[in-house]
Computed example of a mutant assay.
Amino acid sequence: MILPEMKVLFLAAGYGTRLERDVLADQSGKYDHLRGIPKPLVPVGGRPLISHWMDILMKFDTVEQFYLVTNRKYLTQFEVWAQAWPKLQIVSDGTTDNETRSGAVRCIQLAVEHFQITDDLLVIGGDTLLYEDFDLKNYLERFLELQKKTGDACLVTYYNCAEHETVKFGILEVDEHDVVTRFREKPRPEATPSRRACPCFYLYSNSSLPLLQEFLSERKDCPLKEIDAPGNFLQYLYTRRPVFVYKISGRFDVGGLQSYIVCDQYFMQKRGQ
């Protein structure tokens, strides 16, 4: 099967305020090396977190180009890191702190406009790694199957979370054909029967990309919280394009220090095997 050609976008314009706060509060000094480092570049198993994604994606010839959106504060750090990856281009959203951040949806649209992206686009949250049993080739093949049925199809991932965890994640509700019928941002357990948590790992069809500007134009006067999380656009998208789901076993989400430690220790153990 010939896999679809696509572009890849990493979202890396966040400020990692929770992780930074946890590191500053830690009295052991063991994690002082994380100070001032954006989450996509924190060392995981001895390598920058985002480098794990590059290792996987570079194996696919159909990935034509990589893009990354960051902010002005961390731009230089990403530029230094990107010297090892010639196929990757970077753009800054120009912000300097968490209070002035653009939000994920604006960052996606910035990349689409700046790099004139018109192909299918895989969007990956820069602070997320999926469990190692995730098969990217199978995921892309599934997307191709859906595209043959309808060129508008998009494909997002989900994993089953615990009941009490729904308030932490975007939750998907789907029908018998694995099509998204509803998206709820951090709902209480009693508000939805679903436990399908949706990480920021979305494959958007090229026909869905113009909807980004439409979404932002309609919300130009709305507060940031309504356009910040990438799931805000997904909530808009599924009513206009068919969005299918692909089940994964789980993910590492480097939010705070404890989740970082779990992720780092796992990959350090894998490296030692």
Rank of each mutant, 00 (worst) to 15 (best):
L212E: 04
D97N: 08
W81P: 04
K247Y: 10
P187D: 07
V243L: 06
R106L: 06
K225Y: 13
A82I: 08
D26M: 07
Y204V: 02
R240Q: 12
Y131N: 15
A153T: 04
D253V: 03
L19P: 02
R195F: 11
F115H: 06
V156Y: 07
A104W: 06
G14D: 01
K137V: 07
N160P: 01
A12I: 03
L130R: 04
L212S: 02
L172G: 09
L155Q: 02
S102H: 10
L24D: 11
F115G: 03
Y202K: 02
L34N: 05
H164P: 03
V167D: 09
E214R: 14
Q83T: 15
L211I: 13
A111K: 05
Y260M: 09
V69F: 04
L140P: 02
L122P: 03
Q273Y: 05
Y260I: 09
T128E: 10
F233T: 06
F10C: 11
L129M: 08
P48Q: 10
K148R: 01
R188W: 13
R240S: 09
Q27V: 04
C263K: 03
L3N: 04
Q213P: 14
R18L: 08
D22G: 11
R72N: 07
Q265A: 15
D228W: 09
K270H: 01
D26T: 09
L130M: 06
K220Y: 06
S92K: 05
C263Y: 05
L3I: 08
T62M: 01
E141Q: 14
F183Y: 15
D221I: 05
L3H: 03
P199V: 01
Y236Q: 10
V179A: 11
I117C: 01
F10L: 12
E226N: 14
F115P: 02
E145K: 02
I37T: 14
M6P: 02
D221M: 09
Q77Y: 10
C107T: 05
K247E: 13
G151I: 00
R271L: 12
L224M: 11
F143H: 05
R271T: 12
L41I: 12
F201L: 09
V123E: 00
Y67T: 00
H177S: 14
F115Q: 02
S28T: 11
T76N: 11
G170R: 07
Y31E: 11
W85T: 15
H114T: 15
G256V: 06
D152S: 08
L130F: 04
C200W: 01
L146K: 04
